Simulated scan of single mutants.
Amino acid sequence: MTGSASDLAHRLGDHAEAVCREYLSNGHRSGNHWIVGDVRNTRGRSMHVRLKANAKGPAGKWVDEQSGEHGDLLDVIEASCDLTDFREVADEARRFLAMPRSRLQSQTLGAQRQPAAARGSPDAARRLFAMSQPIAGTLAQRYIAGRGILLSTRERALRFHPACYYRDLVTGETRTLPALIAAVTNLDGRITGLQRTWLDPAGNGKAHLVDPRRSLGHLLGNGIWLGLQPGTPVPVMAAGEGFETMASLRTVMPALPVAAATSANHLAGLIFPPGCTRLYIAADADAAGRHGIERLSRRAGEAGILALVLQPRLGDFNDDLRQLGPARLVAWLRGQLIPDDARLFLPSG
Rank of each mutant, 00 (worst) to 15 (best):
Q112I: 14
L169Y: 11
N204H: 15
G227T: 05
R196G: 00
G203C: 07
L228W: 07
S132Q: 07
L199A: 04
I135P: 01
G137M: 14
L177A: 03
T192I: 01
R119W: 11
A207N: 08
H218P: 00
E155P: 00
M237S: 00
Q195M: 10
A140M: 10
L209T: 10
I135Y: 03
R175T: 15
L177V: 08
R147M: 09
T185Q: 04
P212W: 00
D200E: 13
G193P: 00
Q133E: 09
L177G: 00
L220W: 03
L209Y: 11
R156P: 04
P212E: 01
T232M: 14
F160L: 12
G137C: 12
H218W: 07
T171E: 08
T185D: 04
L228S: 04
A125S: 14
R175C: 15
A238C: 05
P212A: 06
Q112R: 13
R126S: 10
L187T: 04
T232C: 15
L169N: 13
L158K: 00
G227E: 02
I135K: 00
I191V: 13
R142S: 10
Y143S: 09
H161C: 06
G110M: 09
Q141Y: 02
A238F: 03
Q133C: 14
D123Q: 11
Y165F: 09
